[in-house]
Design a protein around this nucleic acid. Sequence first.
DNA 1: AGGTGTTTAAAACAACTGTTTGAAAGAGGC
DNA 2: GCCTCTTTCAAACAGTTGTTTTAAACACCT
Lengths: 208, 208
Amino acid sequence: MSQAETKIKIIRAAEELFAVNGFHHTSLRSITAKAGVNLAAVNYHFGSKEALLEAVFDQHLLPLNEIRAGRMRGVAGQAAKNRRKPQLEEVLRSFIEPTLALMLRDAETGHFRMLVGRSLTDPDETVRRLFLDKVNAVLQQLFQLLCLALPQSSPASVAWKTHFAMGAMGHILCLQGPAAFFGAVEEDKSVDEIMEMLINFIVRGMEA
Amino acid sequence: MSQAETKIKIIRAAEELFAVNGFHHTSLRSITAKAGVNLAAVNYHFGSKEALLEAVFDQHLLPLNEIRAGRMRGVAGQAAKNRRKPQLEEVLRSFIEPTLALMLRDAETGHFRMLVGRSLTDPDETVRRLFLDKVNAVLQQLFQLLCLALPQSSPASVAWKTHFAMGAMGHILCLQGPAAFFGAVEEDKSVDEIMEMLINFIVRGMEA
DNA sequence: AGGTGTTTAAAACAACTGTTTGAAAGAGGC
DNA sequence: GCCTCTTTCAAACAGTTGTTTTAAACACCT
């Protein structure tokens, strides 16, 4: 088995187990068993359990950050060229659409969705820091753009509204399988419908 | 030392450590060390670590649930008496105000705030279930009331909007200390200002 | 083929976990 | 005083964790 194969098998297994059981609740033994590799392979290929988590993050987050940053630059550029402020909905779409497209649309990354949702508020400081460092730059970019889109709001207000928005988005990423929290009523919505509802919810909320 | 004293000292120490480090990252040894009691005291007085977590939840959640349920019944009763639908903002206030009043106002329970915020999406199924079982009834009550307040929305839509709202509220409960995420701009807001912003955000979002 | 560097394998390591034990100390009634 | 019940204590238990170690297997080049 080639080096790349083993690493990929480990990452795949780790992604699922980290997402479902959490980082700390997942043992290297369960990862390597699921991946069909030897226990020592993780430390050989990645160095440590924590470095493995970082590899899982990077695999999806690095490309996603590229896309989000690109779209946000596009929105900012268009606004600057036309000498007007960026549209609130445009700004939010440039961040949310790529995020949820990756997280919700693709069945393959369904597990990664939960991992991201929980990493925002993981009880473990290590996990939180690792994740936040990966997305900090793009979050700052989003905040700057929102300040331009909402010139009548103070930066402090925009900051809190951004927190509300992140909370709303992050929470639905955490939901397990068919989310039957309030009866079974949530199920009869498509992913796109949910995303449109979320964007609408946040736009109206931020305009307030 | 009386039995009650020891139990209270353990609960206090556990509340803080569970909130800051998470349930699984907190060892019984660190709890008993902080509380100044013997290691075996937890299992003697509570039976298990999990039962201790439940005791921490109950101490704050049982009274809080009473208050929330009472206020929501009040709103529902007034609406029924006047033969009109309940006001959306009234409904949300009856749930959010008691919650945030307990969580944010009281410095003593600042730790419990984080514990609640994280329990909603804790990676550990045990913690999540334990918490959700404690708040499930009042969440269902909230959902029913929101359906009445938003008759033009389908139950499925209301369910998702409720998820968004819970996410926004839960997320700000998780924030650590002075939340300096986007510069240091979040700090110059009082707790009441934040709560009003949050209610406003959710009301507008749900009306959409 | 032979040698070289990389990858796997099983076992052991040291540290930590929640829980249990059995004896010691304490409290309260008579 | 003594007796009984409750509470504390230090020690040990059994299990799991991430990480190392040492040797074997493999792949690849000359």
